[in-house]
Amino acid sequence: MQFTIPMLHSAITIMTPLLLASMGGLFTELSGMLNIALEGLLLMGAFCSIIFSYYTASMILGTLLGIVCTMILSAILASVTLNLKANVFITGLAVNLFASGMTVVLSFALFANKGVVVFDNIPPLPLLGTPELAKIPILGDIFIGHSAFVYLSWLLLALCYFVLYRTPFGFRIRATGLHPEALSSLGMRPNRYRFASFLISGFTCGLGGALLTLNLGAFVPNITAGKGWIALVVIFLGNKKPIGLLIAAFIFGLADAFSNYAQGALNIPSDFILAIPYIFTLLAMIGSSIYANKKGAIES
């Protein structure tokens, strides 16, 4: 099975934007808001990062500015949703629509090109790892030689776990989703924690988006192609736990990588393989609601 190792290697690259977006989405989800704007935020991050990388001629600065733009968009989303008591679902759709329009409009206005914009001054992302490490059999082939984003996403995942389960802030975020009155009866404001969650979503989506474009050295309209939606699914499949996100994102990444291979070598249509994670998530959701229902039936 010589195809497995390169496949696993590319699965890791593919899963990284999903993992990043789902991490931010995890915060909003735990604080009790269904954040369907991940797609739009991711797209905004993708566009702004490469634009600023181009103008500042620095990928790091560009990425940072891209993150800032994405966080501004998520702050607008949060304040309309929370302060004006709008339906988070509709405002989320609005953000997705806005991002899909705005990125193309700006790309057209700046480069007179609404198709693929290739940026020549942006070098390929450096791949990290030493030859010694890469020599480690199998593991070296799979885990070494990715861009900094990949390793950063793992660090952030650990940080995400730490924040949610080892800081007062994380406990309050979770309490906001589980029982907001418990917080407000002690004089804390659940909406403040929801706002913070949206900002975190903006941060991780900005970073995830940056990987999409910088990896390619180009901006393609709708480059996210539903990755934000998949990130939402990753949260559910990952059972709303950081480690679950890693596994779920990997499943989607693997399905994507495998579908490319299977198409050619095994003659299994790639679309079928890409559909599997959704069906898997659906079954997992049904299973968990049957379980919750049985428990609830005894209680009532």
């Binding site: 609005a94 629509l97 806005f98 899909s100 329009g101 990125t103 193309v104 206005a109 609404k114």
Partner: peptide, 14 residues
Amino acid sequence: TFEIAAIVQSIVFF
């Protein structure tokens, strides 16, 4: 470009 439609639509949404 055509995509200004999406921006206007998103304003309506908000």
